[in-house]
């Protein structure tokens, strides 16, 4: 177990350097420098040059990079050009919103993914198999910007079942910030109104986002279920007259779920980075929306901070997945 952790940590250092270097390089080939955005729509040359100087844009590139890297290790990701606030503060504000959305999307994907995966495996090559698979493949094929919009128009506009934007109603008293996840914070302080309200806001975006990952999970569950169902012990048990669904739940599913963990890890990472469009459409104040707006402003400290956070998160998730795998599957141990 320890070698894996060590390798991953070494990898983490690689990733931080690699990612920061690549993003940094990109930020400097872009036509359109941030000083021109700060100076305003009709800034004069003198002010523009002064701002360049202030931002350190006149320093040689390697000096800028070294400065940036020094900052990273002291927890300073620079100051956002657009919001004029420390990037770290901004990320801390926006990250929980994305995380909460992703967690719920993920719960949705797992719940239905496992369910459909099991059904399609047990009913292999019947119409249930095809319907289930078609349903899940539809998810990866639907452009989120279309499905999201249609959901808003139907369920918010016409039916009024769900709110169409934001994390919580405007006039709702916000739960105190403990974890930053509204549903968790509101439960911790026993504010059920806020809990229901924020859960309510979560439904549509998390379904839209989770649906995209459904098919990956269905496919993996289905294939490993098929493996397990064909194994000797299940066949024997079946021949001994044990109920089919009892077998599936009690034995087959448990063993089938182990390989699923890998996909799950990957898809969690994908969700974290893929929430961008969903956040745009549902006005979700998360990192995805933050980064899109930052790109529009060429706010590179913000973009770099975001990319770093996501990539480091990705490596950590992979580490957790590996460790889980070891814990759950005795064969891999040692």
């Amino acid at each position: 177990m320890w070698p894996i952790i060590r390798n991953r940590l070494i990898m983490l250092v690689f990733v931080v350097f690699g990612v920061s270097f690549i993003t940094f390089l990109m930020s400097n080939v872009i036509p359109g420098d941030p000083a021109r955005m700060i100076v305003g729509p009709r800034g004069d040359q003198a002010t523009y040059q002064r701002i360049r100087e202030q931002l350190g844009l006149n320093d040689p590139l390697y000096v800028q990079y070294v400065d940036y890297m020094k900052g990273i290790f002291t927890g300073d990701l620079g100051t956002s050009i657009r919001t004029q606030q420390p990037v770290l503060d901004d990320l801390i504000t926006y990250f929980p919103a994305t995380l909460e959305l992703v967690i719920y999307a993920f719960l949705f994907a797992i719940f239905f993914g496992v369910m459909i995966g099991v059904i399609t495996a047990v009913k292999n090559n019947t119409k249930w198999d095809y319907i289930g698979r078609f349903f899940s493949i539809t998810g990866v094929s639907l452009p989120v910007f279309l499905s999201g919009l249609i959901f808003i128009i139907i369920f918010y506009g016409k039916l009024g079942w769900f709110p169409g934007s934001g994390r919580i109603d405007l006039f709702m008293e916000l739960p105190p910030r403990i974890t930053g996840l509204y549903t968790v914070d509101s439960l911790l302080v026993g504010n059920f109104e806020a809990f229901k309200n924020s859960l309510w806001h979560l439904i549509m975006p998390s379904i839209i986002l989770g649906y995209v990952q459904l098919s990956t999970i269905v496919r993996q569950v289905r294939s490993s279920m098929l493996d397990v169902l064909n194994q000797e012990y299940i066949r024997t048990a079946k021949a001994n007259g044990l109920s089919e669904w009892f077998l599936i739940i009690r034995y087959a599913l448990r063993n089938a779920l182990i390989p699923v963990i890998t996909v799950v890890g990957v898809s969690f990472g994908m969700l974290l980075g893929g929430a961008v469009v969903t956040e745009m459409i549902f006005n979700w104040p998360g990192m995805g929306k933050y980064v899109v707006e930052s790109i529009g402003f060429l706010d590179f400290p913000a973009i770099m901070g975001f990319t770093l956070l996501i990539s480091v998160g990705y490596v950590i998730i992979n580490l957790i997945v590996d460790l889980l795998y070891i814990v759950l599957d005795p064969r891999v141990r040692e």
Partner: peptide, 13 residues
């Protein structure tokens, strides 16, 4: 390192 970039974000950047 490249895989650690989320695809959409790398493409956007």
């Amino acid at each position: 390192i490249m895989l650690a970039f989320p695809p959409l974000v790398l493409a956007m950047a």
